[in-house]
Amino acid sequence: MYNLKNQTKKATKMNEVVKYHNDFNKLNLNGFSELQQNILFGLIFAIKDKKETIMLDYGQIKEFTKNSKLTGQELWKQAQELEKNLSKLDFTIIKPCEDSKIFERATYNLFKKFSLFYSTSDNNPDNPNKSLGQIEVKINEEFAYLINELTANFTRFELAEFIALSGKYTKTLYRLLKQFRSTGLLHIEWKEFLRVMDIPESYKICDIERQILKPAIKELTAPRTLFDIKRTPFESLSYTKIKGKGRGRGGNVIGIEFYFTPETTNEIEQRANKRNLEIIAQNIWCEEARNKLKRLRDIKQKTEEPTTNQVTTEIEDELEVDNYLYRNLRMKNRFDEYDTLKIQNISKDESGNIIVTLRNADDNHISEMIFKDLKHLENVFNRYAI
């Protein structure tokens, strides 16, 4: 059976930005449910800038789903459906050969490897009641440019904002609009719009407006609070159908245009700068903690014959406590949802209690926990560590 404990944990940051080449927006994510889109773009975030195979565990995958109550068995079913849909998600590349008159047309899949690891209650691999443990993926080298080799031509959006949206059509429209965040105008031919949005053939224009466009516009213009910041995905979003002559599917509609308030360069830069400052602060904090731990170890090595046992005990206590620094806990919050908490600092108060400072990986909220002694801390850590 696959040993999940031996895999390195990689923390997910829901406030990070997913980036991918605009060619990805041309895909029709036919059959991908809302939840499967969340997992797919969560994987895209996790694999960006990485050439090697990456592994995401059950807890990390569940963070992408927006549903903390999903069981391992339910996630297994969704992951299987995602695997089937990805197998149909082919890209075609046309490139010239050395002879300029000859061209190569090749078809590839986005992922070179997509593996699901699961467990069963009776260790029988054929047991239908499977529980998802991990997903292992590796990007196909032919399509590294889609995610990794980004230039000026890319789409970017905050993963948490994307996951918070409801409805697969809303999510697709969100991705299309984000490509034009700096202009506030998207013009697309009607047939292409229907294809990319994966709108059923049976839908009439009135159905599309009532069941897809109006609910999506309402969702995308609704203010929401993410990471203690109130924001609206698209301000003043509206659309106009472009009409022409002739009949056929869509009547005489030949295109559609969406309008919204564009984001200014300053707004984009301010968000990027804020993230950079947070990363810098985090790096400084980590470096200070590493230096402190090194100093303590140096002191212990040099103190071969301490004047009292108390000196040795204090040094050993600090070393033991610092072993928990930057480790992760997974605990339920007051909304009965799971939070991933990273231990940022450990100290003692005048009464000898151990004060543990924790940072929420989703929203960077800082909280504290108090432990009466090292044994108390150890017991809690062993129970909730990930």
Rank of each mutant, 00 (worst) to 15 (best):
A152F: 15
I299Q: 12
K292E: 11
P128S: 13
E318H: 13
G42Q: 07
R247L: 05
W285K: 08
T172E: 15
I217T: 11
Q270N: 14
T65C: 15
P223K: 10
W76R: 12
R297A: 07
K112P: 00
E267D: 14
T120Q: 06
E141D: 15
N309F: 14
M55V: 12
R105T: 14
G244P: 03
E378I: 01
D339A: 04
T221K: 06
K13C: 03
I366R: 05
L43C: 05
N127G: 05
L70I: 14
T357Q: 13
K9C: 03
K342L: 10
N67T: 11
R290Y: 04
V137L: 09
R210C: 05
L29I: 05
D336Q: 11
K171D: 03
E263Q: 13
K77F: 09
N28K: 11
T92A: 09
E378S: 11
S131R: 15
V321I: 14
T151V: 11
R105A: 04
F258V: 02
N124L: 08
G251L: 05
P215Q: 07
D373R: 02
S131F: 03
I217V: 15
K5H: 08
K9V: 08
V196A: 00
F143H: 13
A160G: 04
K292S: 07
K113T: 11
N129E: 15
I212M: 11
N123H: 15
F41W: 09
L43F: 07
K245F: 03
N6K: 12
N353H: 15
E278C: 04
I366G: 02
Q78Y: 15
I284S: 04
K50Q: 10
E34P: 03
N3G: 05
A144D: 14
Q80A: 11
T313L: 10
D99H: 04
H21I: 01
N266C: 07
K300C: 07
S236Y: 11
F371Q: 09
T120S: 06
R383P: 00
N124W: 13
D122C: 12
Y2E: 13
D317R: 15
G72V: 14
R383Y: 10
D228S: 12
K230D: 10
L173V: 02
K9Y: 12
K62G: 01
Q80C: 14
E378F: 05
Y239K: 01
G352I: 02
S236M: 09
V380M: 08
E16S: 12
K10P: 00
I208S: 00
Y20E: 01
N85C: 10
T53H: 03
N109I: 02
A11M: 05
I284V: 08
K88E: 12
G184L: 03
S367Y: 00
L56C: 04
I242G: 00
K10G: 03
